[in-house]
């Protein structure tokens, strides 16, 4: 190996490797590599009985490996979160993610509900929130990764300080009774029906006995010269329709054979409930003045906050539906797609 071109190519290759090596042992590693590669080149030239051409040397260097990869192999294995911590990292991310999303939406919905009016405006606010969720999730992912990377470093430097290998099979949670989970007991279903009947009786009596709704505060409300807005009459009819549908579902639940329809039926009735609340939200006026002595400013404030409370209730109902839909669909989603 004596031509300037081949020496230059070898040195350029070694220089490229050296750029990715730590300074502490850079020269030592490069000298060793130079000696090994030179010996290999000499061997090849001896076989061919002539100096190597530039393409032939390039082929040897290419077979030796890309400079960055070669340099990386001289360094200790590096990772942000190692194999002993990574399962805990993944588990934490999976467990915490739903709470992050839920807290984010609840906080945003309360803010939207307090500042916007009308279904369209609220829906627009929710869409905006959804887009803003993406950077929030990235930020959360980054913070969690940094926390676990710090744990990894601490874990490595403190040896067995975190005691991750210490666990007891006896402390594992009991096996979930799958069948019992799918099918509630008859006692539970009968109790559910009984409570629903009591709830219907309550709904029947509220218009005739308003103190059932306002409690001891009814005498105060009666003096305010206010009454129900017309929206409640329509709502009451729709509510009755919903309660009757739910009664039918609960009665059907008492019998065997409707198990697989239970969740879709429950979901349908919940969706109908959300539509009802949504309709109330869009109404805006819930209490109207019935006499000349009513403070209209206070009435407007009361109507506003009743609207806000309906918006919040609607959010919780939507979250409930989302969770139910997820639980219902989860067994049908391939395991590989749930791997995150």
């Amino acid at each position: 190996m004596n031509t300037n071109t081949t020496i230059d190519l070898l040195e350029r290759y070694l220089q490229a490797i050296g750029q990715s090596l730590p300074p502490a042992n850079r020269e030592d590693v490069l000298n060793e590599l130079r000696a090994n590669l030179t010996a290999q080149i000499d061997d090849r030239e001896e076989e061919l009985d002539r100096p190597l051409t530039e393409p032939e040397l390039a082929a040897i260097l290419k077979a030796h490996g890309r400079p960055e990869v070669v340099a990386m192999r001289y360094q200790p294995q590096r990772y942000l979160i190692g194999p002993s911590i990574f399962p805990f990292y993944l588990l934490t991310m999976r467990r915490v993610l739903p709470f992050v999303v839920a807290i984010y939406y609840v906080a945003n919905f309360v803010k939207i509900a307090a500042t916007r009016n009308g279904i369209g405006s609220i829906a627009g606010g929710l869409v905006d929130s959804t887009f803003q969720l993406i950077p929030v999730l990235f930020l959360w992912l980054g913070v969690m990764t940094i926390i676990f990377a710090i744990l990894e470093r601490t874990h490595e430097s403190c040896g067995k300080k975190w005691h991750l290998d210490e666990w007891s099979p006896a402390k594992l949670p009991p096996v979930k009774p799958q069948d019992a989970k799918k099918r509630r007991s008859l006692v539970s279903r009968v109790a559910d029906l009984a409570f629903h009947c009591l709830w219907m009786a309550y709904v029947i009596e509220v218009p005739r006995h308003p103190y059932l709704l306002f409690g001891p505060g009814y005498s105060f409300v009666a003096r305010l010269q206010v009454g129900w807005a017309p929206v409640w009459h329509t709502f009451y009819v729709a509510l009755w329709f919903l309660l009757l549908v739910q009664l039918g579902i609960k009665i059907a639940n008492l019998f065997e054979g409707v198990g697989r329809w239970r969740t879709p039926l429950d979901l349908t009735s919940k969706v109908f409930g959300v539509v009802l609340i949504g309709w109330l939200v869009s109404a805006g006026t819930y209490i109207v003045a019935t006499g000349p002595g009513t403070d209209l400013h206070t009435l407007a404030i009361v109507n506003h906050w009743i609207g806000v409370s309906f918006k919040i209730a609607m959010l919780f109902m939507l979250l409930d539906i989302a969770i139910e839909v997820w639980k219902y669909l989860r067994p049908h989603i391939p395991v590989a797609r749930l791997a995150f």
Partner: peptide
């Protein structure tokens, strides 16, 4: 052995190994 002759010796006995694996 030094790196290159070790690699040749292993290869001669049927155990080829890449330089980028052996030297590190």
């Amino acid at each position: 052995h030094y790196g290159y002759t070790l690699r040749k010796a292993l290869a001669d006995q049927g155990l080829a190994i890449e330089e980028s694996t052996l030297y590190p």
